[in-house]
Amino acid sequence: MGIVTPGFRGRGRDSAPELPPGQYLTHDFPVLSAGPTPHVETDDWALTVTTEAGARSRWSWRDLLALPQETPTVDLHCVTKWSKLGTRWRGVSLDVLLEDVETAADFALVRCFDGYTTNLPLEDLLDGQAWVAHEYDGEPLARAHGGPARLLVPHLYLWKSAKWISGIELSDTDEPGFWEQLGYHDYGDPWREQRYAGD
């Protein structure tokens, strides 16, 4: 720990007993990005799921909105140590999207319109744990936060909840994503503080 500066507290920041280790509560919604915000029109938007056998399923924006919608209220935990509680979303459960996809794959690599990728086990996308979300707090999802649609996997650190999602590749092998290639954790459970490989 560095030298303490008396009186310095940090902004909008409280510790709270219900938070994962090392996290602080924030009330705003910080934007972290690895690049410029892509402009993706809903007319051009599509989500493609590719199985380990090469079979593809594709949903247009219209297809997505025609599917059953859910409105999860979830807590977000960013590896940069902020957490935001009780965020309200609207989107389609991955259980619905993957229902008819024939796969025995163990892993998923998520791809995005800006070239970003992230990896996680397929089972963490299922059983009511993940959504393709397109509304936040009752409004269409802002571009800066991943609009038109982002992945929402709130039980893992937020870098797994990829903004501007464009596809999911299912695979038998775990291929590291954009940050995982540098040493971020392949799983990223905030409650076990899995920030980096080896945690």
């Binding site: 972290l32 990005s33 690895a34 690049g35 960013c78 590896v79 940069t80 940050w179 540098l182 971020y184 920030r195």
Partner: peptide, 11 residues
Amino acid sequence: VFGAGPGGVAR
């Protein structure tokens, strides 16, 4: 450069 928490991305 985009700062992203513990990481930075230079384009």
